[in-house]
């Protein structure tokens, strides 16, 4: 039996269900609620904004069928299916979805970088008055021009120089600043939290007595295993001595501890990936196909 037939069968059934349910208006619709905004600070100005509404709320004042949201819902559902089609092999639909993804994600981070970094940090420092009048009206009035921001402006321009075919070395200055700063703060943070901090966390008594004076053997074994685990694994990561004799045996224990660590990591990762799949399927079944309604959106 070839899976192709089964898959084709499933696709046909899904297609028919979608067709039938859409034609009867039983799926894939979005509603929005019109809310009038009248800001307190300017009584003569007012406008409408639209919020998500549940299909069950249709008929309530201001709630109506939303074309843009419905279109969006269908596009999201089709894109989701397009990505899943990769499982059947690389194909045009997947490639198209991927091309859209590449463009949208690059565009989005650029917009976010522009408004939050260039406007919010650079221009707010260089031209606070202009920004107060336009993009950032809430900038504190006491904020003065910070001329030091010219330095990152120039360095930023130098970074963009990398796009030109010649003189790529110019971008080394900002890159060096980038790397130097990273080196500086990473050195401190890692040493503090991951070296000193971990040593301190590992200092525990190997014999533990409960409050009533009795010997707490469970906790004692736990502490003993933990400390031995850390020390033996550190031995495994010891490179300047050859691992023979006792050191070999200790580092072997270390490797087993690491394998249990990785086993836990493996199990947890599987759990995570399945959760993500469940979330996508829930989107398809709930938001788009209207097969389930756990949030009582429609009833």
């Amino acid at each position: 039996m070839k899976p192709d037939k089964v898959i084709a069968g499933i696709m046909l059934v899904v297609g028919l269900v979608v067709l039938f349910r859409t034609s009867t208006g039983g799926m894939g619709q979005s509603y929005s609620r019109e809310v009038t905004v009248s800001p307190a600070s300017a009584p003569d100005v007012q406008w409408s904004k639209y919020e998500d509404a549940f299909p069950r709320e249709q008929g309530e004042p201001g709630v109506s069928f939303s074309w843009s949201r419905t279109l969006g819902l269908w596009i999201s559902a089709l894109l989701t299916l397009a990505i899943f089609s990769f499982l059947l092999g690389d194909n045009v639909v997947y490639k198209l979805a991927e091309a859209i993804f590449l463009g949208v994600s690059a565009g989005y981070v650029m917009v976010a970088g522009f408004y939050d970094g260039i406007v919010g940090k650079l221009l707010a420092g260089l031209a606070p008055t202009l920004m107060r009048d336009s993009l950032l009206p809430g900038l504190p009035p006491e904020q003065q021009t910070n001329w030091l921001n010219i330095v990152p402006l120039i360095l930023g321009m130098m970074l963009l120089w990398r796009l030109s075919p010649k003189g790529g070395w110019i971008s080394r200055w900002p890159i060096a600043l980038f790397i130097g700063i990273t080196a500086g703060f990473r050195m401190l943070a890692y040493f503090e939290a991951d070296f000193v901090g971990q040593i301190q966390n590992t200092i525990v008594p190997l014999l533990v007595f409960a409050a009533d004076g009795s010997f707490d053997w469970v906790q004692s074994v736990k502490n003993l295993l933990m400390v031995t685990g850390v020390l033996s694994t550190l031995t495994y990561f010891f490179f300047s001595v050859e691992h023979t004799g006792v050191i070999h045996r200790v580092s072997r224990v270390g490797i087993w501890v690491l394998m249990i660590t990785f086993g836990v990591g493996f199990g947890m990762t599987v759990m995570g990936r399945i959760a993500l799949l469940a979330a996508r399927l829930e989107f398809l079944f709930d938001d788009w196909l209207w097969l389930i309604d756990p949030l009582n959106r429609r009833s």
């Binding site: 070296f195 971990q198 040593i199 301190q200 590992t202 200092i203 525990v204 008594p205 190997l206 014999l207 533990v208 007595f209 400390v227 850390v230 020390l231 550190l234 990561f237 010891f238 490179f239 300047s240």
Partner: peptide, 26 residues
């Protein structure tokens, strides 16, 4: 790499001393 190994040795030493002290107190 050798310097890092020295760091690991110091770390392991501190852990061992600390655990010894903590066990004695318990």
């Amino acid at each position: 790499l050798k310097g890092q190994d020295f760091g690991k040795l110091c770390g392991a030493g501190l852990i061992a001393i600390g655990c010894l002290l903590a066990t004695t107190i318990s």
